[in-house]
Design a protein around this nucleic acid. Sequence first.
RNA 1: GACCCCGUAGCUCAGCAGGAUAGAGCGCAGGAUUCCUAAUCCUGAGGCCAUGAGUUCGAAUCUCAUCGGGGUCACCA
Length: 581
Amino acid sequence: MDIFADFAARVAAALKTLYPEASDELIARAVVEPPRDPGHGDLSSNAAMVVAKPLGKNPREIAVALAAHFKEAADVESVEVAGPGFLNFRLDEPVWHRVLKSIDVLGNDFGKIDLGRGEKVNVEYVSANPTGPMHVGHTRGAVFGDALASLLAYTGYDVTREYYINDAGGQVDVLAQSAFLRYRQALGEVVEIPKGLYPGDYLIPVGEHLAEQYAGTLRWKPEAEWLPIVKDRVLSMMMDLVRTDLANLGVAHDVFFSERQLHGQGGDIDTTLDWLREKGLVYQGRLDRPKGATDQDWEDREQTLFRATQYGDDIDRPLVKSDGSYTYFAADIAYHRNKYLRGFKHMINVLGADHSGYVSRLKAAVKAVSDGEADIDVKICQLVRLLKNGEPFKMSKRSGDLVLLSDLVGEVGVDATRFMLLYRRNDAAMDFDFALVKEQTRDNPVFYVQYAHARTCSVLRMAESELPALDFSREELSIAPLELLVSPADLELIKVLAQWPRTVAAAALAHEPHRIAFYLYELAGAFHSFWAKGKEDKTLRFVNPEDLKLTVARLALVGAVRQVLVNGLTVLGVSAPDELS
RNA sequence: GACCCCGUAGCUCAGCAGGAUAGAGCGCAGGAUUCCUAAUCCUGAGGCCAUGAGUUCGAAUCUCAUCGGGGUCACCA
């Protein structure tokens, strides 16, 4: 039950009745939201002001008419016209009790708005090159994509979480060459890793495996023969590494899509480019020399280009490299056509900041390969600066200057890592301070929220031991006398709970999981605040032996808080511990 | 040179499909603990929402310039 959506629909209906000439588009612009100032009531709508001008009427006049329409509503205590034409509703108390009741009835489903109606969405995230273990640079995108996917699944989309394995380019040849050296090393040779190859220790086990499996048989073969063998082996081992790292972060994908399967004669790239060619979107042409950039290697040549400008990109984009092989982008076009043909009309890609220049061509590609049927939202995750007590932080051992994801998770834990990364907008650069994240104080939002959850559990435990005569089972709480919850403190807390569905909807529509994290922080604060009130005023304590009925009702409220905290933390993939140790 | 993101309290950041007097945490100044976990709570000070114009009933939010910070810029992935 979302009272905001509920009233928005009722206001819209009222507008339609009063002003049949108003278009649906116009009416849709009216919103119902919680006013910033509690003095303005429980709900507030701008409907009259939005509609006034196009209808050629005075906004206050419309507001008065709307207000009259709601005067008789059973659940509206009062409705006022304020300021330039705001409509301020104050709701009857039983409304809030019904909200609370619905949380109890719906449980995990409270807040589960069906925005997606089962539509398929493909969320592609991480997609790191399989050339080594994951490092912190990948972490933000991994957590963001995972939480966004959960959020969309929670709001009724049929979500596929996908990882695109960039296993077709020159980098993987270099990787295989590096692994081959480790293989020789495992055979007893003393090797030196030349510049340009991957020096990481993580390839040593790969070499050992190769030595075990093939003994010396690969050693003197020509590269053309051993390369495919080593490549397959190292790629599969690197992907195991990646999967393990991701699993430790609580991230899982449904589909691992290999770029290699797109290549080859008659493969997806060929067929896609043929298809585009027929549409006149591929041509031979020349590009202007780019300005500003380092262009000493620039070679003015005729090349195969995709007409990206037709879909809003700045320039047309090359599809074939000078050595005749396909560009990364060519494969990506084919990949996105593949997604479209698999039934995805909505796609989301989570990319790092260094790919921001790639966005417009990707959008152009999706439009082109789907004949404008599909849409793609590209979410850019900005850089994360690692700090410790304000100082830049390094702690790498295995791979040069990079801090590994596994180091990060090992140091601060999955919950803190995930929550902190989700507690910022994705498109703003952020600092991640180890010292702060490990602290268990209010400075640290993870613990603040988890502590609130632990407290709800502690209250329930407490009640059971203090008042053994009472039954606090879920069944019993579901028939609790909620009408006893009439203090301002009770109602205030319920009103925060009532905003959960609205928050979910807004976060899902905007593809912004951080809104969930902020909401949880707010709810935790409201709960902690209520808790403290019990110190001064015993009638506000959750467990009150002098009023058993009220105690049962309060525990139902505590149960609802716990439920919503769980729902939110679940979306973010952060645990909700029963107690903090 | 072009494009993208960001500029909100001393610090870190919310708020942005336009809405009423701009929020939170930290830090700072005070206060609360024989009492459900003080891992918490309460009160206070602190602002030209980078700057300038525009759009309109109304702009932190939309548009355009300017300044400042970050990122990207044929064939890499």
